[in-house]
Each structure stands twice: as C-alpha cells, then as structure tokens.
C-alpha cells in the first residue's frame, strides 16, 4: 500500500509539478472555458435564428433552416472545425480561440435550434389564443407567453447540449489550441507517462461539468417555481 502510494506521488510529481506542468493544464482550462462560453452564446443566437426560420411560414426561410440543420448534423464536428479554421477563416486575422468558438457555435446552433423548435411547439395552442384574444400582438404573445414557458420546458435539453458542447471542444487541439485535452496529451508525450495525465484530464473535465450541472440545476429550480402546487 505504502509502495503504491509513493509510486502514485512520484507520478503525480513528474506529471504535474515538475517543470511547472500544472500551469499548462491551468491555461488549458482557461482555453476550454473561453471557447465553450463563447460557443454557447453563439450557439444560442444561431439556434434561435434557425428555429425561427424552421417555424416560419415563409418557404424560403424553412428551406434555409432545413439545409443548415441537415449539413451540420450530417458532418463530423472535427471536419467542420478544420474547414472553418483552415478554409473559411484561413486568411482572416482573428484569435485562434475565437475562430474555434465560432466553429463550435455554428455546430451547436443546429442542435439548439431543434431543441428550441420542439420547445415552442410543446406549448399548447390555447396559450397563443388566450394571448391573442386579449389583444396582444403575435410578437407580444410569443415573447411574453410562449417563450417563457418554452424556456422552462427546454432547459434540461439545453443543459445537456451545453455539456456535450464543452466536451466536444476537446478536439480544438486539431487547430493548434492548447486546451485541457491537448495539455494532458502534451504532458503524456513529454513524460512518456500515459496514466496520470489522461486520468488528470478526465478529472478536470468531470469537475468542470459537475460545477456547471450544479449551477444549472439551481437555475432550473428557480424556473420551476410556478409549478408548485
């Protein structure tokens, strides 16, 4: 037991303490968080836009929304990331992490739009009729009556999408960003030790997502206030 423990400490020291390697992981956490947060915001914005297109009565908007969702869902996110980084933004002078966040946002938007669309369709037609019968406009009915209720319904699915998105960012190493995954990988190559850096990477992701889940759980409890009986 003592031998195992000292062995563990030795590995831990070599992988994380020696040559300040933990700093690599810390900056990796920063990159992952930066990319994820911006991507979530972009994803929600694009998702709302595409959801409105899909729900619209205009055929051309429906077609645009359909094609977008179809292409994004039909291709791997690594491929999308590389196309956006090396092809579309090849000659644009933007920070790497911003380009990566745009790529993940574009990807996430397709999934978010489907979640939002399902959420809006889940609200009973009577709610819209009640709003309109009071004299509210279609826009007022949507923003004050339908969307607040839809948000509550789609919140769990949206949280799930955020979690998937954060883990998905582990591929940003493909375009040369040093996130958590890439930092762990770098340590593995430098030390020739696989166990400690990879388990460390997993633990960091797990803790990040656990914190996020707890936060989102609190928000959801607040949203559910009106369900109390």
């Amino acid at each position: 037991m003592a031998e195992w423990a000292s062995n563990f400490c030795d590995l831990f020291y070599k992988c994380f303490i020696k040559e300040d390697r933990y700093k690599l992981l810390l900056s990796g956490i920063g990159v992952t968080i930066k990319v994820s947060l911006l991507a979530i915001v972009i994803g929600i914005l694009i998702g709302m836009l595409i959801a409105l297109c899909n729900l619209s009565k205009k055929r051309i908007l429906k077609i645009i929304g359909g094609i977008y969702t179809d292409i994004i869902r039909g291709t791997p996110s690594v491929t999308q990331l590389m196309i956006i980084y090396f092809v579309i933004f090849a000659s644009v002078n933007l920070d790497k992490w911003i380009i990566a966040a745009i790529a993940f946002g574009i990807n996430s938007g397709a999934y978010v739009s489907e979640i939002i669309r399902a959420g809006i369709m889940s609200i009973d037609k009577g709610q819209t009729e009640a709003g309109r019968s009071l004299g509210l406009s279609a826009y007022q009915t949507m923003t004050r009556i339908v969307i607040p209720q839809a948000v509550k319904n789609i919140f769990p699915a949206l949280c799930n999408e955020f979690i998937v998105l954060i883990k998905e960012t582990a591929i940003v190493g493909y375009v040369g960003l040093m996130d958590i995954q890439k930092a762990g990988d770098f340590i593995k190559s430098a030390t020739f030790i696989a166990f400690m850096p990879l388990i460390g990477t997993a633990v960091i992701y797990y803790v990040l997502i656990k914190i996020l889940t707890l936060l989102l759980g609190r928000i959801e409890a607040r949203l559910r206030k009106s369900d109390a009986r």
């Binding site: 009577g126 009729e129 009640a130 019968s133 009071l134 004299g135 509550k152 009106s226």
Partner: peptide, 20 residues
Amino acid sequence: VNRIRQKMGMVFQQFNLFPH
C-alpha cells in the same frame, strides 16, 4: 385585429391561464 380583440373578452373551455 389586435385593436378589435381588445373590445372582446374571451373565456375558453380550457381556461388557458398563463401557468408561468
């Protein structure tokens, strides 16, 4: 339409109160 509807209150079979 919205102006006309403001003159007419409507009560539905399913109440349609806003649950939120």
